[in-house]
């Protein structure tokens, strides 16, 4: 299984973090959705925003900022951030490729796609390419089994993958070189 580890406290982890004004406004709007005293409900959506504002991962400072916005104990944020697999507690590449590896995808050839991507990118699932461009992540069923094999990159699903299409996608992303986030519109 993908290694989930404690957050890092090294230099990378202590890089400063501050929400942008736009993000703060979004956080406040989210918090207003819930009944009085229940703003903790906004924790997961706000963590998504923080992750998007912190190069695709949650540093200690980013999580602390979330705790500050919501008025929570920091451990409450940490408990939640480490539970959910879409939150990265370590730096990731410009693109995170979430490749589905669950049985229905496997039946339609996901093993081959994953093996190909591993070879092509020179990393195992969970790893990031040396140039910091791609993080390859093996994930569980993304609800796209009829169009398998598939991968998710940011908010986008790339379906009916073949080796050729995977290659084309990698080339295209590399050429574009701009970060994708789950929260992209």
């Amino acid at each position: 299984m993908s290694a989930r580890t404690r957050p890092i406290t090294t230099t990378e982890g202590t890089r400063p973090f501050a929400f942008s004004e736009a993000a703060l406004a979004e956080c406040r709007a989210l918090m207003a959705r819930y009944p009085e005293g229940r703003s903790k409900s906004a924790l997961i959506p706000i963590l998504h925003i923080a992750q998007a504002e912190n190069d695709g991962w949650l540093s200690v400072n980013a999580m602390d900022a979330v705790a500050g916005v919501l008025g929570l104990q920091r451990i409450e944020v940490y408990e939640v951030a480490s539970f959910y697999s879409m939150f990265n507690l370590h730096p990731v590449g410009t693109y995170v490729l979430d490749v589905c590896r669950t049985t229905p995808c496997m039946l339609r050839g996901s093993d081959d796609v994953i093996a190909h991507l591993e070879r092509k990118l020179g990393v195992h699932c969970g790893g990031t390419t040396a140039d910091g461009m791609f993080t390859l992540k093996g994930v569980e069923c993304l609800g796209s089994c009829g169009t398998a094999p598939m991968l998710q990159c940011g908010a986008h699903y790339h379906e009916d993958l073949t080796i050729e299409r995977a290659d084309a996608l990698i080339d295209e992303l590399r050429a574009r070189n701009s970060r994708t986030n789950y929260t992209d519109r």
């Binding site: 989930r4 404690r6 957050p7 104990q73 451990i75 940490y78 408990e79 480490s82 539970f83």
Partner: peptide
């Protein structure tokens, strides 16, 4: 008053941790 430790991660890699 104010819990500063808890359970982090999930499944069989869950662990008791304080905040850093």
């Amino acid at each position: 008053d104010g819990r500063v430790h808890g359970v982090i991660n999930r499944g069989d890699v869950s662990e008791i941790s304080t905040y850093i």
